[in-house]
Design a protein around this nucleic acid. Sequence first.
DNA 1: CGTCGCTTTGACCATATGGTCAAAAAGATA
DNA 2: TATCTTTTTGACCATATGGTCAAAGCGACG
Lengths: 205, 205
Amino acid sequence: MNEARPVTRIQQKNRATILDAALDVFSLRGFGGATVDQIAATAGLSKPNLLYYFPTKEAIYEALLGGLLDTWLDPLRAMKPSGEPLPEILAYVQRKLEMSRDFPRESRLFANEIIQGAPLIESELSGALRSLVDEKAKIINQWAEEGRIARVNPHHLFFSIWSLTQHYADFDVQVRAVLGEGVDDPFPEAEIYLTTLFTRMLTPS
Amino acid sequence: MNEARPVTRIQQKNRATILDAALDVFSLRGFGGATVDQIAATAGLSKPNLLYYFPTKEAIYEALLGGLLDTWLDPLRAMKPSGEPLPEILAYVQRKLEMSRDFPRESRLFANEIIQGAPLIESELSGALRSLVDEKAKIINQWAEEGRIARVNPHHLFFSIWSLTQHYADFDVQVRAVLGEGVDDPFPEAEIYLTTLFTRMLTPS
DNA sequence: CGTCGCTTTGACCATATGGTCAAAAAGATA
DNA sequence: TATCTTTTTGACCATATGGTCAAAGCGACG
């Protein structure tokens, strides 16, 4: 009768600990480069104990990725056709940049997955993601036709927002190396730069 | 007396074959996720035979990365202060985009390395790369002061060029998934979009 | 306190993986 | 053709890795 086992406090805590450790390891080494032992060590658990909570390495990875794309797209969903065009877009850029600053591991995990061919989430990319983007692209086009923003290819506009914001998480090492010791937080300047960029590009001439 | 052994034709061919195969595998799976057997199989060689040409897996990886950053930066080196500002910058963007189109594996290899913390090339990043960027940043600032382009943060300008162009190689799967079946080559539109973007951002108001 | 189910672990296993080595095969050279 | 060097390979090895299992530890609850 599939007796519903309650989720104990220990289970909740350990699952969370494992996922956090796995995020550390997977985002840094990619799926193939990560080992269960590393994750277990990072989580402070024995390997069999870890495998008591997640049956396989794949299961941990899937648990991390599942929902990540969804969370990642929340800021885009928040872009409303009723708002002022430029502020709506700039708010989206800013929220994406904040996510790069506050959740760099998630960003890198996602980047790793995509670079490696997105074996696990390709269906979501051409399904849910594509639908959402198509829908929001119409809004951009609408705004452009009304002359409220300059005309741009809306799909590539989204690509550029993703690329520019995620760059500060994924290529953090490079950004810091190039900026040098003097700069300990690249994000304030990044925000100014990106705001300027999108404002100049989208302001109708 | 360290008799200089000549490099035979067979050696040349096999080294090239191995590096090409390794590029396939490393760019898709990252260093940790790649196996010597996969590389050997892709190259059509036996594993011991492969290890006759490169002593270790690391050696293959290093051989690939060594020089890659250098090649990668050639287009930036070509940016001359004597030229017209906007065309110089647009030419740089265009050449970087071409590299993403023609050498996506190299781009992904590089991305993998950076995302994973650049263990092998961090010194180059804060050495050669940083110097070159600082030098070119001065040119950008000079142009801005002369009123020939709009004022922007030059370092972040370079970040944006790298990020936007490499995105089309590294996130190719996502780009194609979002654009759908109808688009079989995203690059022409990308070029138009990026040209527009940088023109609008950099044209003095 | 005793029982029962949840949690943890040491020992273990099969396979994968990076790498070695001696010997065979294949060229080059004379 | 005989000799010497370069190239190739089958067999092998130590370690790493993903995963299993039976048994022990532990906590909640009657």
